[in-house]
Deep mutational scan, measured.
Amino acid sequence: SEEEEEEWRRAKERGEEIIILGILWKPNDEEAERRIKEALRRV
């Protein structure tokens, strides 16, 4: 969703871990980033 995407962007800017759509994303975690982008597209 729009607000999840916004939340994720803010976490990326701050360089902090975030759990979004049930996926743990850490800074520079390209695999998780790809999965999150896929999940955001499906929503």
Rank of each mutant, 00 (worst) to 15 (best):
E33Q: 04
E4K: 10
I20W: 03
G15R: 06
E30H: 11
R10M: 09
A11S: 06
E33A: 07
I18T: 09
A11Y: 10
K12G: 02
G22M: 13
W8R: 01
R10T: 06
P27V: 03
W8Q: 01
G15Y: 05
K26V: 11
I19Q: 07
E2P: 13
E13Q: 12
R34T: 10
E38F: 02
A11K: 04
E13K: 09
P27H: 01
L40E: 01
R10A: 09
G22S: 03
E2K: 13
D29S: 05
E38R: 05
I23G: 01
R42V: 10
E38W: 02
W8Y: 07
R34P: 00
A11G: 03
I19D: 02
I18N: 02
R35S: 07
R9G: 04
K12N: 04
K12F: 12
R14K: 12
D29H: 04
R41H: 09
E16Q: 11
R9E: 10
E17M: 11
I23N: 01
E31Y: 06
S1H: 15
E13V: 10
R10I: 08
W25F: 04
R42P: 04
I20P: 00
P27T: 02
E5M: 12
W25A: 01
I23L: 05
I36H: 00
E33S: 07
D29N: 04
L24Q: 06
W25V: 01
E6Q: 07
A11N: 03
K37A: 10
K12I: 10
I18E: 01
W25P: 00
E13W: 08
E4Y: 15
A39M: 12
R34I: 08
L40K: 02
E31P: 01
R9H: 09
R14C: 15
S1K: 12
G15P: 02
E16L: 13
N28R: 07
R41T: 08
E17W: 13
R34A: 13
D29T: 01
E38P: 02
A39R: 09
G15C: 14
L40R: 03
R42F: 08
I36A: 02
E33K: 02
E2D: 13
P27L: 02
L21F: 11
D29I: 01
E16P: 03
I20S: 01
W8M: 04
A39D: 00
W25K: 00
E30S: 09
K37E: 14
K26M: 07
P27I: 03
I20T: 01
W25N: 00
I36T: 02
A32T: 06
I36D: 01
L21A: 09
G15K: 06
K26E: 03
I19F: 12
E6A: 11
R41V: 08
L21W: 03
P27D: 04
R34E: 12
E31N: 07
N28M: 08
E31I: 08
E4N: 10
E13G: 05
E3I: 14
V43T: 09
I36S: 01
E33L: 07
G15I: 04
L21R: 12
K12Y: 13
N28V: 02
E30M: 13
R34Y: 09
R35E: 07
E5T: 08
L40F: 08
E7L: 15
A32M: 03
K12V: 09
E5P: 10
L21P: 00
R42K: 12
A32P: 00
N28K: 05
K12T: 06
E16F: 11
G22V: 12
V43N: 09
A32Q: 02
E33G: 05
E31Q: 07
W25E: 00
I20Q: 01
E2A: 13
E4L: 15
L24K: 12
E16K: 10
K12Q: 09
V43C: 14
E4A: 15
E6V: 06
I20F: 13
E33Y: 07
I20C: 12
E33W: 11
E3N: 14
E3S: 14
P27E: 04
I23A: 01
G15Q: 08
A32V: 04
L21S: 03
E30P: 11
E5R: 05
R9A: 09
P27A: 02
A32D: 01
E7W: 15
R34V: 09
E31A: 08
A32Y: 02
E3F: 14
N28H: 11
E16T: 10
E7K: 15
I36E: 00
S1N: 13
I23R: 01
E4R: 11
R34C: 15
I20L: 04
E6M: 09
L24H: 08
E7N: 15
E16H: 10
E31S: 07
R9P: 01
L40D: 00
I23E: 02
G22T: 04
R14L: 11
A11Q: 03
K37Q: 11
G15H: 05
E4Q: 13
E38S: 07
G22Q: 02
I18A: 06
I19S: 05
E2M: 14
I19A: 04
R9C: 08
G22F: 15
E16Y: 10
L40W: 05
E7D: 11
I19K: 05
N28Q: 08
R9T: 08
R14G: 05
E38L: 04
R35P: 00
A32I: 04
A11I: 15
R41S: 10
E5A: 08
R41W: 07
G15N: 09
E3V: 14
I19E: 09
E13I: 11
K12P: 02
V43G: 09
S1C: 15
A11P: 02
K12C: 11
E13N: 07
S1F: 15
I36V: 11
E4V: 15
N28W: 11
E2I: 14
I36Y: 02
R35M: 13
E6T: 06
R35H: 06
V43I: 14
E30Y: 12
A11V: 08
K26W: 05
R35W: 06
R35K: 12
I20R: 02
I18K: 07
E5V: 07
E30W: 10
K12W: 14
E13M: 13
E2Q: 13
W25S: 00
